[in-house]
Design a binder for these strands. Structure first.
Lengths: 144, 144
DNA sequence: ACAGTTTATATGAATATTCATGTAAATTCA
DNA sequence: TGAATTTACATGAATATTCATATAAACTGT
């Protein structure tokens, strides 16, 4: 089933959505194979850099609404991948961090993600990917 | 609440997701003001080019699963914006098309979408947007 | 210090999406 | 041709997301 032309959604918006969906979907297969959803992977990947993130910060990063993240984190907490604790100086905040089990779970995926990006780069061309990244970063910086 | 660095999701994948979300969100405000959801807008924008599209084609274009689109189209049919009819030579297919009311509804949005893209282009720079589009098209063509 | 406001998260009800599967039409090939 | 397979869409149950709102903590100005 091939379909391409005609769609608008601002065209640029559509190209971005389509390319984003494409790349994420490819890696989605890898993520699901390890028993995580795409959102769970995003949360864990985000946390694997930092020591902890608040629910609000996570929502911003993973591009989801706050109640969605609250419940997502709740499920991940039950699964034993993350833990919550109240922020020391602002007890409204709920700081989310990876558990040791979560860290073990996400570690191989981080490597596979890099491998996937390397594959995409090999297919598209390193200069193009660099240009692409620069422009996207500029868009995000200017308008985000 | 500012958050940026650290996230991975393959990094390129994240930049794409973030930029896509950003641009779509901006226009989302316009879409919602006219009483449509983002998905409804995508469906109607897709249909406004073509005479009709099958449910499967729509699902592919709007980046959603088939049952999602079946139900989305069902709601839009009730709202009077689209209509379904069986395909003449393949009665399994359900061809979706805009009603006159749907056409009237989407028409101003198509213009506003163009205006939005023009604004983004003005902000980011026309050459950058052209490059961006070319690279995205290449990605989609190569891997889609 | 306190009343009013804002901010961060949680929660319940409403809504939307997805998975698994069902149905029916088209296609394949022996 | 016709049985087996595949394809397209629909549907019900399960799940996830979202909206509206509640709660509680942090600020603000007096």
């Amino acid at each position: 089933m091939i379909t391409e032309p005609g769609f608008v959604d601002d065209y640029l918006a559509y190209l971005l959505a389509r390319a984003s969906h494409l790349i994420s979907s490819e890696f989605h297969a890898v993520v699901e194979a390890s028993g995580l959803s795409l959102m769970e992977w995003r949360v864990m990947a985000s946390l694997s850099g930092k020591d902890s993130l608040s629910v609000g910060e996570l929502a911003d990063i993973v591009l989801a609404k706050q109640p969605t993240v609250t419940k997502l984190v709740g499920r991940m907490e039950e699964a034993g991948w993350v833990q919550r604790c109240d922020a020391p100086h602002d007890k409204r905040q709920s700081l989310v961090s990876l558990t040791p089990a979560g860290r073990r779970k996400v570690k191989p995926l981080l490597a596979q993600a890099q491998a996937h990006e390397a594959q995409v780069t090999a297919d598209i061309g390193a200069p193009e990917v660099d240009q692409l990244k620069r422009i996207l970063e500029r868009m995000i910086a200017l308008r985000g």
